[in-house]
């Protein structure tokens, strides 16, 4: 066998070391941020912290949560993730079911497919989209974070492919029993599609939690912003003119360990669902792959 070959064994261990090194490199920045967030102010300012906290304390976290803006933003983000994911999944599952029917059964299927395919490959652009949202009256409304993103064609395709891979006998049996499309979807398809639904829900949820641009584009008042948008202005732009905060707040925001704490809090929900995500996503991705 090739792996008994001495030169291959040398390669094998070098390769192993390389891969382990690379994977550690992928999580080191997060560990660094976590260490800074738990460090004392002076050590963090002087940038002495590497991967272990110096002067260990939770002060930056308590300071962060004392800030009302931050609490509001977290609530908005949670609310957004729940609403957006629930409504998005309902719309996606319903549409995907219809699209998963054969063209023999659902003759205008191709028409719908092109309708959705087109919006996936052509976008009107930032300014027309903004003007439309303005015209519809959604500027400064919570729903601007939810409604435009409800139709995610890519998720629809994943869901549709999952439905199509289910055994046809289930359909046959249900039809013979006189079940309608609604009945087939709710009583036959939904119960056995829970893993796929869980996967796509988790991805949607992470997407909602992470998205920041729509909040910045469509919402003028900072109290309405989701966490990602707030974090963007505090941590990245470092622009305090818009946020209307007091000088004490300003001192706090420019504090390196507080900033690190805020970044880590934004990472936390993703880290929490990550083990679940990982169990599912390989399946989900393969669905869109090359078909024989």
């Amino acid at each position: 066998m090739y792996y008994k070959d001495p030169s291959y064994r040398v390669f094998y261990y070098i390769n192993l070391a390389l891969l382990i090194g690379i994977s550690i490199l992928c999580i080191l920045p997060m560990i660094h941020i976590f260490a800074v967030s738990l460090s004392g102010k002076s050590a963090a300012e002087a940038n002495l912290v590497t991967f272990f906290p110096i002067d260990f304390n939770f002060e930056s976290y308590t300071k962060t949560f004392e800030n009302d803006n931050f609490g509001n933003a977290i609530i908005t983000s949670i609310w957004r993730a729940i609403t957006g994911t629930t409504l998005g999944m309902i719309v996606t599952i319903m549409a995907a079911f219809s699209l998963s029917r054969s063209s023999a059964e659902f003759r205008v299927r191709a028409l719908y497919v092109w309708f959705f395919l087109f919006i996936m490959i052509f976008d009107a652009g930032l300014v027309p989209n903004y003007l439309l949202v303005q015209k519809v009256g959604l500027v400064n409304s919570f729903w601007v974070l939810i409604l435009p993103g409800l139709v995610n064609v890519w998720n629809m395709i994943l869901m549709m492919n999952f439905f199509r891979a289910l055994p046809k006998e289930l359909d046959e049996a249900a039809i013979v029993d006189g079940a309608t499309s609604f009945r087939i979807l709710f009583s036959v398809y939904l119960p056995i599609s829970l893993p796929a639904i869980a996967t796509i829900s988790l991805f949607t949820m992470v997407g909602h939690w992470n998205s920041w641009f729509d909040g910045m584009l469509y919402m003028r008042s900072q109290e309405q912003w989701p966490l990602a948008t707030l974090l963007q202005t505090i941590v990245v732009v470092q622009d305090f003119s818009k946020t209307g905060i007091t000088p004490e707040d300003l001192e706090m925001m420019s504090n390196r360990s507080v900033k690190a704490a805020q970044i880590f809090i934004a990472m936390l929900p993703i880290l929490a669902v990550y083990p679940l995500l990982q169990r599912f996503f390989v399946k989900g991705i393969v669905l869109g792959a090359v078909k024989e």
Binding site: P29, I33, W209, N210, W212, A228, Q232, A266
Partner: peptide, 8 residues
């Protein structure tokens, strides 16, 4: 997100 990674 790139907001988090940008900050880092």
């Amino acid at each position: 997100s790139w907001v988090i990674l940008g900050g880092i």
